[in-house]
């Protein structure tokens, strides 16, 4: 139903890891530490040439004389075409041998980057989605300035809310109880993302480079909804679903509330498919579903993580159940 069954959601496509984080959060230190680790070998890095920030090139170790300039600008707005071109060029040159045979790409966004367009670029653009797989989005957060940045810049909120992993940096600048407060706040904003604490800019490379095929189990955030209206919840469906029904339900949800479906990801137990089907959508754009060869664990229930704005879990569940029932009648 979904083509060749894959071992991993990315199949053979080139994995891409997007690293976001606000200005000075420690993205470059994190990437430098990854490059210095054995696990970081074979990594191509794409960074913004944002003039006002200035990339400290001495911190990154260029391995090739070939460089591709993205030019000034922010990946999310003016640079989408450049990002697409850069990725395609990298892959072509890799095949030709004019750059080393890298096996993953890390995209470091500018601090002001709005992550949604970058997600959409990788999951939905035909030119990229066939060759590249968005393995995950990592948000780097400066523990000391997180709360003040969050209050002033909505981009910071989006970066955290849409992340798969959160790396908390500069923890040596704050007291342990303040760090606990930051971690609690991050969980409140994005309970589905795992948060890790970097020490002197370093964190276990696996935390950034490897992602499970299934969404992690998580406890819903306690307390009142964030003023932004952004909320994360999990939808669990016990019985295998009919694909046509789920597809129609998602189409309905997108038609009704597409802009508020900030990100939906997870594994679905589809009738007739022995393996789980990976679902990933960002607002109105849906990545073509892929079926995996095997479930990652004994749990065969469909598990979807919804990151939404001004919607409730019951609303989403009701739409999905109602449309599925209508389709199956």
């Amino acid at each position: 139903m979904f083509g060749r069954r894959l071992r991993h959601p990315g199949g053979a496509r080139m994995p891409v890891i997007v690293v976001t984080g606000f200005l000075g959060a420690g993205k470059t230190s994190l990437i430098r530490s990854l490059l210095e680790s054995p696990q970081g070998a074979g990594t191509a890095i794409i960074v913004n040439e944002l003039g006002e920030i200035g990339i400290d090139q001495a911190l990154l170790r260029p391995g090739s004389d070939e460089t591709i300039l993205l030019g000034n600008g922010c990946l999310c707005c003016r640079m989408a075409n450049d990002l697409r071109e850069t990725c395609a060029t990298l892959l072509r040159e890799r095949a030709q041998g004019s750059v080393p045979p890298f096996e993953r790409i890390i995209v470091e966004t500018s601090g002001l980057a709005e992550p949604t367009p970058i997600l959409q670029t990788f999951i939905a653009e035909r030119a990229l989605r066939d060759d590249f797989h968005l393995r995950g989005m990592v948000a780097v957060v400066d523990a000391a300035s997180f709360e003040s940045t969050l209050a002033r810049f909505p981009e910071c909120l989006r970066q955290v809310a849409l992340a798969d992993r959160i790396v908390v940096s500069k923890t040596d600048l704050i007291a342990p109880d303040a760090l606990a407060h930051v971690l609690a706040k991050l969980h409140e904003l994005n309970p589905a993302a795992r948060a890790g604490v970097a020490v002197e800019g370093r964190i276990a490379p696996k935390f950034v480079l490897e992602f499970e095929p299934s969404p992690p189990r998580f406890a819903p955030a306690a307390g009142p909804r964030h003023p932004s209206g952004i909320e994360t919840f999990a939808l669990v469906l016990d019985a295998p679903v009919q694909w046509s029904g789920l597809s129609q339900a998602l189409t309905t949800l997108i038609a009704l509330r597409g802009p508020d479906l900030l990100r939906v990801k997870g594994l679905v137990n589809v009738q007739g498919c022995p393996g789980p089907v990976v679902l990933h959508l960002v607002q109105h754009l849906v990545h073509p579903p892929v079926e995996l060869q095997a479930w990652p664990d004994a749990d065969r229930r469909s598990r979807l993580v919804f990151i939404v704005r001004d919607m409730t879990a019951s609303t989403v569940r009701n739409v999905i159940v109602a449309v599925q029932e209508a389709v199956s009648r």
């Binding site: 890095i45 794409i46 960074v47 090139q57 170790r61 090739s64 070939e66 460089t67 591709i68 300039l69």
Partner: peptide, 9 residues
Amino acid sequence: MTFINDFPD
């Protein structure tokens, strides 16, 4: 800008 960290061996 693009940097590539080559394999060590």
